[in-house]
């Protein structure tokens, strides 16, 4: 290549040069730093090209309203049976009558819906995910319940209530330049969130919060002075009996793996596993041998098959599994 004859645009169209700027690696770095040293008169041309390249950016985003308008439109289209092609819908929607009609429908729906809180529930052995109006996504594990206030996204804070277990991926939201906090209420804890992903378990008088990324602040529901800030990879626990919040470093995957239909554990005590499985499947696991309770389980099993778990367990430990209705006895 006759790089010394290159003008700015030639550099910018050159794959070798653009790779150096966009995906730098040792080989390109060597070549170009050497080349610039050998051709000091071209240094400025190279810098200009580099500058243009580094400043190329596409940063448009949909506004909140656009995003939810579009999603509503898509959902209207997908919920109909015998859906006409998207194109037909578009023309249809462009008609003024349709617009007025849609507006009335929305208004009517809004009045109807704002009158009561929305509740999302899952039965034993089933999961479900929910996208809230602000774009936050919540995956509910089995036997869990999420309650969302009607005017959820319009207030000064976004508030939801959780019972059972759920994974939260919270969208950032600002209004008039102010961040709108997202607060998850549990029996013992309030979790204050600013755009982040974490897992909550609120069962049996105990709340576990495991943070995947972002940051959250936990506030004791009964003592606002008792707070703790959680970093990614940490888990905090609050029980009814403990006065203080406790935190520890954990493998967060262990807490949120159920979302991918896999329970994944490393050194989990069998007695804890027994509780967790009982809560998810609506069964009772009774460990009749005290020593066995303190044994640990490492491995994974699909969330939709509790049988697989018992099979694995049977191979790992010299134990007998007896089933009686909804009760499993390990001895």
């Amino acid at each position: 290549m006759d790089y010394h004859k290159f003008e700015v645009q030639d550099f910018l169209a050159d794959e070798h040069f653009t790779s150096w700027v966009l995906k730098p690696d040792a080989e390109h770095e060597d070549f170009w730093t050497t080349w610039i040293r050998l051709h000091p008169d071209r240094r400025e041309v190279v810098q200009q090209a580099r500058h243009i390249l580094e400043n190329i950016d596409f940063s448009e985003t949909w506004t909140k309203t656009e995003r939810s308008d579009m999603w509503n439109y898509i959902q209207t289209g997908t919920s109909k049976s015998g859906i006409p092609s998207g194109r037909k819908i578009q023309r249809w929607l462009r008609m003024p009558y349709a617009a007025v009609f849609a507006l009335l429908l929305c208004a009517g729906g809004w009045f109807y819906l704002t009158s009561r809180p929305v509740r999302f529930q899952t039965p034993y052995g089933k999961q479900r995910s929910v996208t809230l109006a602000d774009g936050s996504r919540i995956t509910l594990n089995a036997n869990s319940e999420l309650t969302v206030r009607q005017d959820f996204e319009n207030g000064a804070k976004r508030e939801v209530w959780i019972r059972g277990e759920a994974f939260f991926d919270v969208a950032k939201m600002t209004r008039d330049g102010k961040k709108i906090p997202f607060i998850v209420h549990t029996d013992q804890l309030d979790i204050h969130v600013l755009g982040t992903a974490f897992n909550i378990t609120n069962r049996r008088g105990r709340v576990d919060v495991a943070l995947e990324h972002g940051s959250v602040k936990l506030v004791d529901a009964h003592n606002a002075a008792n707070t703790i800030l959680l970093e990614p990879g940490e888990k905090a626990t609050q029980t009814i009996t403990d006065a203080l919040l406790k935190k520890e470093i954990v493998d967060v995957k262990e807490y949120s793996g159920w979302r991918r239909k896999v329970f994944q554990y490393k050194g989990k005590k069998l007695r804890e596993l027994a509780e967790m499985i009982g809560d998810s499947y609506g069964i009772e696991v009774i460990i009749e041998n005290e020593a066995l309770k303190e044994e640990t389980f490492t491995g994974s099993f699909p969330t939709d098959s509790v049988e697989t778990f018992f099979e694995k367990l049977g191979k790992l430990y010299p134990l007998e599994i007896a089933k009686n209705g909804d009760k499993y006895y390990l001895r």
Partner: peptide, 13 residues
């Protein structure tokens, strides 16, 4: 905007 909406409907259908 129209095209993105249409795209998701087409995928669903």
């Amino acid at each position: 905007k129209d095209a993105v909406q249409e795209l998701f409907l087409v995928i669903w259908n």
